[in-house]
Design a protein around this nucleic acid. Sequence first.
RNA 1: GCUCUGUUGGAGAAGUGGCUUAACUCAUUGCCCUCUCAAGGCAACAUUCACCGGUUCGAAUCCGGUACAGAGUACCA
Length: 558
Amino acid sequence: MNKNLELANLIFPHINRTIDDLEKLYPPRNLKEGAKVTRFAPSPTGFLHTGSLFTSLVASKIARDSGGVFYIRLEDTDTKREIEGSAAKLLVQLHQFGITPDEGYLGDKEVGIYGPYKQSDRKEIYETVIKEMIIKGIAYPCFATEEDLARLREKQTANKEITGYYGKYAIYRDLDIDTAISYIKEGKPYVIRFKSSGSHLNKIKVHDEIRGDLELTQNDQDIVILKSDGLPTYHFAHICDDHFMHTNLVTRGEEWLPSLPIHIEMFNALGFKAPKYAHLPVIMKLDNGNRRKLSKRKDPEASVDFFLSEGYEPQSLLVYLMTIANSNYEDYIVKTKDYNLDNFKFSLSKMSLDGALFDVDKLNFYAKEILSKFNKTTISAKAYAWAKEFSPELITFIEKDYNRFEEILNIEREKKNPRKDYAKYADIYPVIKFFDRDEFNKIFETENFVFNEKLTKEIILNFLKNYSSSNFLDFVEENDWFGNVKAVADRVGFCIDNKLYKANPDAYIGNVNDACEILRVTLTGRAVTPNLFSIMKILGTEEVQRRFDMMINRLETI
RNA sequence: GCUCUGUUGGAGAAGUGGCUUAACUCAUUGCCCUCUCAAGGCAACAUUCACCGGUUCGAAUCCGGUACAGAGUACCA
C-alpha cells in the first residue's frame, strides 16, 4: 500500500470524497463573458472597518458593473480573536451602506449553491483537498513546536538568513512516513504544511489588475495550511474557497501582496486556475508626520460606526470612498452632478497605487452637497430616523411639532443653490435649537447675547421698540418684510444704503446690517444664522414679540 | 535584518517622451454678491514632479543608484 495513502487515511479516516467530487458539487458558474465574481471575506473580529467598507464597495461595484456576482464569505477560522455577534452586525452595517451581496453568508441565512459560506462549516472541504495533497506528496504533517520554530528563527536572524520554515530548515518535510505515522498514533500535536518546490532565488511574474505586471520572489516557505485545531489558515482557505466558489477576481488589501507567490504556487500545485487579483491600497492617516493605516483603536473614522452615529448619510461616505477609488469620479461628478454610484463606470486600472490619506474636509464637502439636495420631507424623515437611534435631544425637539421641524429644515432649501449647513444629522440640532421656546429661555438665561460694539444700549432699545410696534410679520414677500426693516432702521437713524454708509460711516449710528444684527441676536442669541425672515415666520408673531420683550426688559433693567 | 511595493502643491490626483505655461476636486486666502452666515460667482496658490546621475535634439514620463515611506516577514486574517 502507498505510504502516503496510509498517512492520509490515518489523519482523515472520515474523508472519502475527492477533489473531483467537489468539482462536480460546485460546477462553474453560468455567467456571461466578462462577468466578474467578487467577494468580501470579513473576519468576525469586530465591527466594520472603513477600509473593509472600501474594499467591499469596490468588489460589489465591479461585480454589478460586469453583470457578475458579489458574495460574502465569513472567515471565522481564528477562533481566539472572534467576537460574538460581530458577524451579524457586519452584515447589518454593510446593508446600511447599501452594499447588498447577491449571495453568501447573509447574517441570518445563507444564499447560493456554493456554500457553506462560513469557513468553520467548510472543514470537510479543506480536509478533502488536504487528504489528496498528502496522497500526492505535496502536504505533510509537521511536529515542530512553537519553541522549535522560535529557536529556528533566532538562528536564522543571527545568520542574517531569511527566516521561516523552508528548504533545509523544514525539518519535517522529509520525515520518514512510518515515523510520522507513529508520532500521530502517539498523539503528538501537529499541523499540516504545504510542501513548496520554489526557491527564493527565483522570481515570478504576476499580473495585478491595479498594479500591472509585477516581479515577486518565488515562495519557498512550507506554510501551514491546517492548524493544530483542525482549521485552515487564510492562505489555504483562500485557495479552496475561491476555487470552488469560482471567484474570478480577488479584491483585497495590499497587505496581501507579499503572500501572493504562496497563493500562486498552491493554485498551480493543485492544478486550479488562479483568479485575477487586484490589491487595493489601504486608507491612511497622517500621524505625527508619518502615514499609517487607519487604526480602529486610535481613529474614530476607522470604524463605520462613527459615520453612522454622527449621522452621515451613507451615500456621502460611499461617494467619498469612490473618489479615492477612482479619482476620475470627481470629474464625473463635476460634469454630471450625478451622485448615483450606479451610473458611474468604475475602472480598476484608474485606481491609485498608494493609500490615500483620509480627508474629513472632502467627506464633509460631499456630505453637504448630498444633504442639501434632499427635499424637506426626505431630510426630515432621515434626520428623525437618525435621532431615534442617536440623539434624544433632537428627538424631543422633533416630536414637539414635526411640521414645524420640516419647515425649519426647509429654510433656503428646495431651490437652485440651497444652503449647505449640514454635513451630517448631528449638525442639525445645535443650529436649530433656538427655535424651541424652552431651549431659548435657557439660552437667554445662561448665554451672553453680544451685540456689535458700536451699538449702544439706547440704540438697541430704540430700534427694538420701534420695530416691535411695527407690523413686522404682516408680509408675504421677503422683500416687503425687508422694506419694513429698512423703514424702521431709517427712522431711528441707521443708514439703509450701504454705499452711502461706506462713504461716510460716522454720519450714522450704523447701517441696515447692524439693525438686522439687533434682530438676529435678540431672536436667536447668535450673530450668525440663516435667513431672518424665514426664522421669524417660523417663530410666529407671538414668539417674536415675546423675545423682543425679553430683550427690551433686560436692557431696561440693567 | 530580509522580501516586496510606492514617492507629482496642505489633501485626493490627471499626466506613460514634444500638444504642459503640470488638468480637475477639496482645503486655504482674497475680491464680488449680500440682513449675518452658508451657498454662488471670480481670482490666487507646484518656475516644477523625493534626491543624484545617465539616455535623448527634447524627460514628471525611459534607465541606474540613493533617500524616505508603507506593507509583509505567525498554527492572525
